[in-house]
Write a protein that binds this DNA or RNA. Structure first.
Lengths: 240, 240
DNA sequence: TCCTAGTTACGTACGCCGTACGTAGTGCGC
DNA sequence: GCGCACTACGTACGGCGTACGTAACTAGGA
């Protein structure tokens, strides 16, 4: 029996091929791709060991030869889609590069709506995450600051992207596990909110809703948030 | 059978007492408190319908008279701890007030480490969330900007707090579901990271780790992040 | 005042889940 | 060519959310 579990491990430190027995039928990439396919199509909750095994065409328990725990499967998934990041030659304008990074990550998360839920610093050192991080640091070469500050900047940008995309996707993704439609859900919640606001107990909320500047442009909100964050770093500059 | 499920609803729009039958044995507050107690002590994953019912001292299915779906239980939990926010008379200095709000929320999340995982804009309109939001807007009265911008500011501050506390708690909370200790987990991951960096493939990461400015002060990192975000808003000011 | 309809309480059961364990077959390193 | 570490995978256990059915109860309308 291999490192079936029960003792600490990182999936990346496990060799894919163990030399001794019959050659494994699947690669880690194939397994990750199968899981990603399911998550994209049916949501993260549909990614069960049984389901992924079926997608691969093998018995459920065979999966455990490749992935000691379900969490490791999640780690494979995050790394797999992290590989979709396009890395370019830094332009010399770190602000522009960081904006480009952020927009790319946002697009990635829209392509894989389950990704925000799996975002964790714990997964931040997978192979593709390291490539991505190194690329961000390269983009920040022109930014005069310590590496500590640069890492804080990268963390902040990633955090803002994750937060905003989570919010953008919240109702849609939530509806997946509900027996009614998103429109119904939204309608009910907005009706309740309206009734609370009409109670007069929240005058500023009422004023905010009275402003009513038409439909919200989520991408514009996102862009403004990013701009402000980068402004905050530019002001502090290399200090701290 | 009551609105047992199957059609859209908001838990807050359901009357607690339905007039007709025997008087309910528990209040919503009692149920939320029981769930919160379990989550605090054993983690969010331990909050199952069976477990909460047992904590209350009733049969599992009786819970469904109060809470049509498990998700509604989560909503009750978030609202319950949101009630722990201390609201004060705005000081007139919106930056100071927002910092205070942020530090208080951070403390709240440290007290209830499962909270970041349940943070969702969908839950943002529960009774206590509305009180909190109204208070934030009151603190922002001296901030010259549209309510749209103010709401963006509140969202940003909340987002940053959630992100940073999530990161602070990540390894600790993760260990809860693992059969080994956090120290072992950390050691294994750091060893792997070290080996990757030693490979020379990530020169800037290597340089970043070489800086090694001693143990990280998480609270200081948090404070810096907040300061930068507020700076970003102060610069833009009322524009946009 | 009594009837009844809608409520509460809750046991049982179904179909999922992660995964421990045991067994059989396979092919590399010695 | 032998043995052993590996792969493959069926079975089974304990837990989950929750649909459904039944019995007890009580407030409203007659």
């Amino acid at each position: 029996m291999a490192g079936r579990a029960a003792e600490p491990h990182v999936i990346w430190a496990r060799p894919e091929r163990a030399g001794r027995g019959p050659r494994p039928a699947y690669t880690r990439d194939e397994i990750a791709a199968a899981a990603v396919r399911i998550a994209d199509a049916e949501g993260l909750d549909a990614v069960s060991m049984r389901h992924v095994a079926a997608e691969l065409g093998c018995g459920t328990m065979s999966l455990y030869n490749y992935v000691p725990r379900k969490e490791d499967l999640h780690e494979l998934m995050v790394d797999a889609v992290s590989g979709e990041h396009e890395l370019w030659e830094p332009s010399g304008d770190w602000r522009a590069d960081m904006l480009r990074v952020a927009h790319q990550t946002r697009a990635l998360m829209h392509r894989h709506p389950w990704l925000p839920r799996l975002m964790s610093p714990v997964y931040g050192f997978s192979p593709n995450a390291l490539r991505y991080l190194e690329h961000c640091l390269a983009c920040l070469d022109p930014f005069e600051a310590s590496y500590g500050t640069k890492l804080e900047l990268v963390a902040m940008v990633n955090g803002v992207v994750t937060t905003y995309v989570s919010n953008e996707l919240a109702t849609t993704e939530r509806t997946r596990s509900l027996p009614w439609s998103q429109e119904q859900e939204d309608a009910v919640r907005i009706a309740y909110l309206g009734s609370r606001i009409a109670s007069g107990a929240y005058p500023r909320m009422a004023a905010a809703f009275a402003e009513d500047s038409g439909p919200i442009d989520l991408e514009a909100v996102f862009r403004r948030a990013l701009t402000r964050v980068l402004d905050g770093f530019e002001r502090t500059g290399g200090s701290a």
